[in-house]
């Protein structure tokens, strides 16, 4: 169920402000691609264009093309809601629905889209929680509020919720930045397992994390202050970290700036 993403010459705007310029890249299926770069370089913004989440912000729009296998995500006939069902997302801060139980949180995506069959839901909820390495911890308290879990568990709950709608791609926007090291490790292990089934894109501020979990790494940077962000280079992770093509990447990796 994993698909390839092809981005060609993408510009992202908010109103008249150009946030990201000229990004072209390919994200391979069943692999983990990490986006790294200094704050404000547009990596999160770009990530959100991969499931059209940038559009929920007033004035957000793109120029260019994003292909999911042979589907054009920005074709005029394409419904953004359908795009988001195909390309799931996990956010920086765990955001379980506070009024819902653990079970309801995982089932939310299906239920809100009209799936009612209890048996189907039961099956998918268990499968998703297992997929998120959370099943054994919560199987006895599925009816308890999701907000009662620890931060790391909440984030895995959100991952379970995201994979329950069976997306092709999973976007993760700094999923560990609000978590402690042990929870972070649990998420990283999970990412490693999930890449067997999904195409995964992860934005991270943590270069060690990018090195640990990703197969390929993309480095984003601002051309200059006030200029839009752009993709500097994308390559195999080992290569980016050991022998990058660009000087800017080298400087960033070695901690000379950013």
């Amino acid at each position: 169920m994993a698909k390839r993403i092809d981005v060609s010459d993408l510009n992202v705007y908010y109103g008249s402000f150009k946030a990201v310029e000229g990004v072209s890249m390919t994200v391979e299926p069943r692999s983990v691609t990490a986006f790294i770069g200094p704050s404000g370089c547009g990596k999160s913004t770009f990530l959100r264009t991969l499931n059209r989440m940038h559009e929920v912000v007033p004035g957000g729009r793109v120029e260019g093309k994003v292909m999911l296998d042979d589907q054009d995500l920005y074709a005029s006939s394409m419904d953004p809601v359908t795009v988001r069902r195909t390309v799931g997302m996990v956010f920086q801060r765990p955001n379980p629905f506070p009024t819902m139980s653990i079970y309801d949180n995982v089932a939310a995506g299906l239920r809100l889209n009209g799936v009612k069959n209890k048996k189907t839901l039961d099956g998918i909820v268990e499968q998703s929680l297992q997929g998120a390495n959370l099943w054994t911890e919560v199987k006895d308290r599925l009816s308890k509020p999701g907000a009662g879990l620890s931060g790391g568990q909440q984030q895995r709950l959100c991952i379970a919720r995201a994979i329950a709608v069976q997306p092709q791609v999973l976007l993760m926007d700094e999923p560990c930045s609000a978590l402690d090291p042990i929870s972070t490790l649990a998420i990283e292990d999970l990412v490693n397992e999930l890449k067997n089934d999904f195409t995964i894109v992860i934005v991270t501020h943590n270069m060690q994390q990018a090195a640990r979990v990703s197969d390929r790494t993309a480095f984003f940077n601002l051309k200059a202050t006030g200029e839009p962000g752009r993709l500097v280079e994308i390559d195999d992770t080992t290569r980016i970290f050991n022998n990058p093509a660009e000087q800017a990447t080298e400087d960033y990796i070695s901690g000379r700036f950013g």
Partner: peptide, 21 residues
């Protein structure tokens, strides 16, 4: 969109939802 006050941070964090949602 001309409303400059609606411009979000680069992160895209903005309390209001746009009509494109």
């Amino acid at each position: 969109v001309s409303a400059a006050d609606e411009l979000p941070q680069p992160d895209g964090k903005k309390p209001r939802q746009g009509d494109r949602a």
